[in-house]
Nucleic acid binder design. Sequence first.
RNA 1: GGAGAGGUGGCAGAGCGGUUGAAUGCGCCGGAUUCGAAAUCCGGUAUGGCCUUCGGGUCAUCGGGGGUUCGAAUCCCCCCCUCUCCGCCA
Length: 469
Amino acid sequence: MIDLKALRDNPERFKTGAQLKGVTVDVDRLLQLDASKRELGTRAEALRAEQKKLAKETGPKLGQLMGKMKSASGAEKAALEAEVESIKAAPARLKDDIQKLEAEIAAIDPELQTILLAVPLPPDNDVPRGTSEADNVELRRWAPDGWDFAKSFEENKGFAPKTHLELCESLGLVDFPRGVKIAGSRSYVLTGRGMQLHQAILRFAFDTMVNENGFTPMSVPVLVREESMVGTGFFPAGRDQTYHIEESARGGGYDMFLTGTGEVGLMGLHADEILDETTLPRKYVTVSTCFRREAGAAGKDTAGLYRIHQFDKVEQVIIDKADEQTSRAHHQSMMGYVEGLLQKLGLPYRLLQCCTGDLGVKNADMVDIECWMPGRGDVNSDGRPTGAFGETHSASRLYDYQCRRLNMRHREGGEAGKGATTFCHSLNNTVAASPRILIPILEMHQNADGSVTVPEALRGYMGSLEVIA
RNA sequence: GGAGAGGUGGCAGAGCGGUUGAAUGCGCCGGAUUCGAAAUCCGGUAUGGCCUUCGGGUCAUCGGGGGUUCGAAUCCCCCCCUCUCCGCCA
C-alpha cells in the first residue's frame, strides 16, 4: 500500500508511476473520495466532541435524577421525567447528525480502500522505462569456463543437446502421465534420481543461505488467511493466480488460500509488530511448496517442468529499517547469494533489469535472474531448439509498500523505546525454485552418452553420486 | 467434533454502565542520592487519524465487526484467537 499522504502531496508521481507500470488506476477519484471522507470526518469529529462534552457534563446529574425517579411518584416524578428528557434532548440530536455523517463515510470508504490497494508503488527513477519484458535490460552475464554464449551448445560441447523432457524420459526422472492422472494438467511426479536431485538442490540452497549467508531458517504456513495475502500485496492483483479453499462455502469458519511463495509466510511473521532496531536486519529463509493456478497461461511453456501448478522453493527475505541506501545494498547482496549458488552449480546465467512495465504493483525495482536452457528457444532447420534464457529467480525491492500493508514497523530501542515508529523496508528473492531449476541443471550437465553429471556441490546430497545414467 | 474458561497498555494484572485512555506492579526513559553501582526516592512513559494561526486542538482504539444507551473496556449479537478436559489422529 502506498502512503495516502504522499499521494495527496504529489499525485502526479503516482499517476506517472501507474502509467509506467501499465496499471490503470483512477488517482483523481481516489483524491476526491479522500477529500470527501476527511471533510465528513472532520464534521463528525466536531459533533462527537460536542456530544462527549455534554455527556460528561450532564451524565452524573442524569444518574442522580434517574435514581430519584425510582423513589418518586406523582407530580414530582413527572417533573423529574421532564427534566431528564430535556437534558437528553441535545446530545440525542447530535447523535442523529453524527450517524448521518457516519453513514455517508461508510458509503464512500469501500471504494476508497479498493482504489488505494490498487495504486502501485511508483518505480524508481533508475528503472528503465518499458511496457513489457521485451524492454528489460541485461545487466551482466556469467558462464563457467568452457562455455561461450556466442556459440551453440553443440559448438561448445561437441554434441547436440537433448531437452530436459527427453532426459527426464530416458533417465526416468519424471513421470508426467501419472502426474496428470493424479492431479490433472501441469502436474508431474518426480521419480527416483529426479526426486533425489530435486531434494539435493533445495537442501544445497537452504543450507548455503543458513550456514554461509547468515539467514535464519524458518518453516511457515502455506495455507493462509486472506489478510496475509492482502498484507503481503499479492491480493487483490494476484487473486486469479491463487488457489482458494472455500471453507465458508461448506459452512466452515473462513476461507483460506494456498501461497504461491514462501514470501507470504516469511513477511507475515512480523505483521502488526514493532521491531527493535537492534534486531534488524531480519534475514529469513524458508523452503516451502508453492501453488500457482497459472490461469491465463494456457499454451505458454506448456511442456515439461517449466510452468507447473505446484513446486518447491527456497525463498529469502530481508526486513530492515527504512533506508533507501540500505535497501539497495541488501538487494545487491541477495542477488550475489544467488550468483554464488549458480556459479557453484556451473550454470550460465544473466541478470535482467526489469523495466517499469514488468515490475508488478508492489516493486520499486526488480531484477530477474535467468539461466541458460539449451532446450528452449527458437528451433533450427532440424526442428531442434537452439537454447534460450529462462527465468529462474526474481529479486524485488519494495521499500515500505509491503510493510505498510502488514503494519510492520521499527523504532529505536524496540517496542517500549522512545521515538517515532517507521514502516520497515522489505526485499525478497528466490534462492532456488525446483523443479524448474532442474531444467538448466539437466540440460547443461548432460553428456554425449545421454547421462547427466551431478554438479559437485550436490553430490553430498546424493550419496556421492557423480553421474545419473 | 463435544464441553468449559478466557482475550485489557512493552509485559503481568485490576476495572464489569457515568472525567477510565484506563488503578497497581514490572520493564523502559529522565532526575535525585552515590566516588561509581545496586537499593531507595521523584517525575515521565500507547498507537493511529483529522484539523492547526504550529501554541495546540480533537477523534478513534481495552481481540475484530455490528447493536443497545444521552453515555460502553463494562450490556446484547456475530466472527476470530488462546487455554483446559473428552473424542479422533500423522
